[in-house]
Design a protein around this nucleic acid. Structure first.
Length: 423
DNA sequence: TCTGGGGTCCTAGGACCC
DNA sequence: TCTGGGGTCCTAGGACCC
């Protein structure tokens, strides 16, 4: 048996933990650059504010209903996520954190008796320990646990915990659920299935298997099997190493010059290298992209991207920044209003030290040991004095800064912000 | 004026190997 | 006249997730 624990309106709930006056009010959290809605309280959903909707199109509605608006505060949400995951992990034999606000649990060994009681206890403990409300779905496959979770959220009668244990109750639930709500069935497949008379999750479960395999491929076939109670997706207790690491941002206002773009790219490359060291990996490839807004006139649009191999796989900020800036110079075209840029690291391998094969023709002089020690010193300084206390000179946010006009304090990750909120 | 960011997996087709 | 079988790797594009 699997359980899926999912935090309710997670980012909004994080803000409410530290400002209880937000309870009962409509609240939204905006994406980076204060662009779109990425979290909404139930009250905000009831007003018709859509997930992903651009905030500027709803300005009147937001003002009229005095909706509380927040810029995304990812340091806060990430920290709160860690607290929720630790609390759940302490209460479960196996846990797979699936996203910032969700985790699958292994409930094997509980038998059928006591599953719901146990999950109610998990829910109470998370609420008491972190202040975050969660919903829990329990079922024999991950896909059905997702479905059960949705029911737990939708129907207050479940009081936050829904168990789908036998085929008849699963079929009832699937009959009442649109196929597009099923985990793994996105908008494209929903439209395709609709054209073939498949409208509910139950229709998909009962469709001919060969037909599903042919048109929805192996991933769709797995979804169908899981709906029918055959588990295809095991709990992944160890997180696999990342295959790519990306840092990208839209700019607060358009950027036209190579210098300003270079500052942004240096900043993104620096963040990528830090994430890479957090994974204890080295990267072999660096991709840089810079583009205009997709809402520009077609003639004013540009999408530049290029990937190069590092001469030696590395986790060194200086080497990665140097490479990324060189790539940027190559893809930069003057005369465009750049709206977004990013850096992607790939071919990530463990930083295994001695076991690492060396290339036949090494161009770099610096010994790996010196680089490792320099990065340790860099990370130690920034960990003690704050991100960016020690950085490459080109890493500056002077001209491409994002809009973050309604940012809440970093309540759990910055002493200065805690001092600021004292009365 | 204003529209996010970070990921994964799968398939088809081309090019290549013995 | 007649022309095999079994693979790998790479890339672009599509689809999905939160």
């Amino acid at each position: 048996m699997f359980a899926l624990v999912d935090c309710n309106n997670f980012y909004v709930s994080c803000e409410r933990v530290f400002d209880p006056s937000l309870n009962g009010r409509p609240v939204v959290v905006l994406s980076n650059n204060d662009g779109c809605f990425i979290a909404r309280s139930n009250e905000a959903k009831a007003l018709g504010l859509p997930m992903g909707g651009p905030a500027f199109k709803y300005r009147d509605l937001l003002r009229k209903h005095r909706v509380a608006i927040y810029s995304a505060n990812f340091p806060l949400y990430g920290d709160m996520s860690g607290r929720v995951m630790n609390t759940i992990g302490d209460l479960s034999p196996g846990i797979e954190p699936y996203s910032i606000d969700e985790a699958f649990l292994d409930l094997s060994g509980f038998g059928r008796i006591g599953l719901v009681d146990h999950c109610r206890m998990v829910r109470r403990t998370v609420s008491r320990g972190t202040g975050i409300p969660v919903s829990i779905g329990i079922a024999p496959t991950k896909t059905l646990a997702k479905l059960a979770n949705r029911m737990a959220k939708k129907d207050p009668a479940h009081d936050g915990v829904c168990l789908l244990v036998d085929a008849p109750s699963a079929r009832d639930a699937m009959g009442a659920m649109a196929v597009g709500q099923v985990w793994g069935i996105g908008s494209r497949h929903t439209a395709f299935l609709g054209r073939h008379g498949i409208g509910t999750a139950l229709d998909l479960a009962d469709a001919p298997e060969a037909w599903v395999r042919k048109h929805l491929h192996i991933t769709g076939a797995r979804v169908q099997a899981e709906l029918n109670g055959r588990s295809c997706l095991p709990l992944e207790l160890v997180r696999p190493r990342k295959q790519s690491i990306c840092t990208s941002r839209s700019f607060g206002s358009p950027v036209t010059g190579l210098d300003a773009l270079g500052e942004a790219v240096a900043h993104f490359a620096t963040k990528c290298a830090l994430k890479l060291r957090g994974e204890n990996g080295v990267a072999g490839l660096v991709t840089v992209f810079a583009c205009t807004s997709p809402f520009e006139e077609p003639a004013a649009r540009y999408w530049g991207t290029r990937t190069v191999a590092l001469s030696l796989p590395t986790q060194d900020t200086l080497a990665i920044v140097r490479t990324a800036r060189a790539v940027l110079e190559d893809i930069f075209r003057p005369g465009f209003r750049y709206r977004k840029a990013g850096v992607i690291l790939a071919e990530i391998a463990p930083a295994a030290g001695a076991s690492q094969p060396l290339p036949l023709f090494v161009q770099e002089d610096a010994s790996p040991t010196a680089s490792v020690r320099l990065m340790q010193a860099l990370d130690a300084v920034n960990s003690r004095y704050g991100p960016g206390a020690l950085r490459v000179a080109s890493d500056t946010a002077s001209s491409w800064k994002q809009h973050q006009e309604r940012l809440s304090p970093h309540y759990t990750t910055d002493w200065n912000d805690i001092i600021d909120i004292r009365p």
